[in-house]
Design a protein around this nucleic acid. Structure first.
Lengths: 210, 210
DNA sequence: ACGCTACCCAAGCAAGCGCTTGGTTGTCAA
DNA sequence: TTGACAACCAAGCGCTTGCTTGGGTAGCGT
């Protein structure tokens, strides 16, 4: 149960220590078992308090899910902006973005895709809109990068379609990919970009086709 | 609530009328709300009986989920085998397979990806192995087709990786794609295959880049 | 010293859950 | 006609769930 401190990536948020402990516990449990199968008693135990004490910090269990998703989405947007900053060539920006998304899925602490994708259906509709608005920061980075690739004729398809196909492909990696077995995150990134981008790729040896 | 009769695709299964009605009700509800948020009372009501009567046909709620997944997986395998039969060129086989998977997601009745993907975590571990075994029929078709593309140098990556990336991309279409807005299933199929396959694609007009 | 507030515990409520029980009906072969 | 059996209903049991209640306590400013 390694402590994750990814909330500290968001300096413009005021989160008390107790609240942060609860959110980290909830994130870990939602990631592991999903929202529906996680009870408020689970979350409280992981945070080191009793279940009733949760409701001193959050009004409902739904609000915990919402806050976890909101902060995760916000952190994701920040990471994406930082990932492409200072990179000129659009194909290199794309590579950085793909690596950023893969790291948010397979890295420590944030577990972005798992919580944001798997638990989306459990988030009540009135909360969804707010998350979607927050997510625009992230999607806007993707739009610009893909548009940059497209106008130079590098992209093998229309940007919005490619974005959705890539997003699905990346999100799905959580079910089969383990960093280093046998590919590293960077190697997987290259493989993904090879699909999206037109142009030559290195010849594959015959034995690599297995 | 259009009746779906996709169980009739499996002639080697003996399913009573009542059992079929329950399974169809469960499939529709799992697809709509997910397993955890669907109660046995919901399923029974949709099937036109009371909740207690469900357990005359199934021992547990889990068993209903298992049976829905098992039959769905079996139907999926049959469809895949039929889809590539009689097609010689591997790139055409791939196109047929992609269309087959998209149809299983967006077509009527089967709702393959939604139930098989979204509800996988709710299926208890002892049931999973059986589903995975049944799924081998489907995956074997994919393996052979991708291998066929690879040995002719058509594939833009290693077959197992491409398979996983494609599967994620296709499964994710359930969240954003609506047939005919603006793409048809066949057009989307072409778009997907363009990513996976090396080679020329038709020039895109500038306005299509939006 | 005082009160205020933030935080937490102990106990439990009301509702909903999966599932069980006992008994009634319709069907069909003997 | 009768017995057997599958299908279903009516009622509810035992448990878990999210959440509430009332009270206790440590820390802090005044």
């Amino acid at each position: 149960m390694g402590k994750t401190h990814f909330f500290s990536e968001l300096p413009d948020e005021q989160i008390s220590a107790a609240r942060a402990r609860i959110l980290e516990a909830a994130l870990a449990l939602f990631h592991e078992k999903g929202f529906a199968r996680t009870t408020v008693r689970d979350i409280a135990a992981q945070a080191g308090i009793l279940s009733g004490s949760l409701f001193h910090h959050f009004a409902t269990k739904q609000e915990i899910l919402f806050e976890v998703m909101r902060l995760t989405t916000k952190a994701l947007g920040r990471r994406a902006v930082a990932a492409v900053r200072g990179i000129a060539a659009p194909e290199d920006q794309l590579k950085a973005l793909v690596l950023c998304e893969l790291d948010a899925i397979h890295g420590e602490g944030i577990h972005a895709s798992r919580v944001l994708v798997d638990e989306w259906r459990d988030l009540e509709p009135e909360y969804r809109e707010h998350i979607l608005t927050e997510r625009e920061v992230y999607e806007e980075v993707w739009r610009q990068v893909l548009q940059g690739c497209a106008v130079r004729g590098l992209l093998k398809g229309r940007p919005p379609i490619v974005r959705q196909l890539l997003h699905g492909a990346l999100a799905w990696t959580r079910t089969w990919f383990l960093p280093g077995e046998p590919l590293s995150l960077v190697e997987l990134t290259d493989e993904v970009c090879a699909l999206a981008l037109r142009g030559e790729i290195e010849n594959l040896s015959v034995k690599a086709l297995t």
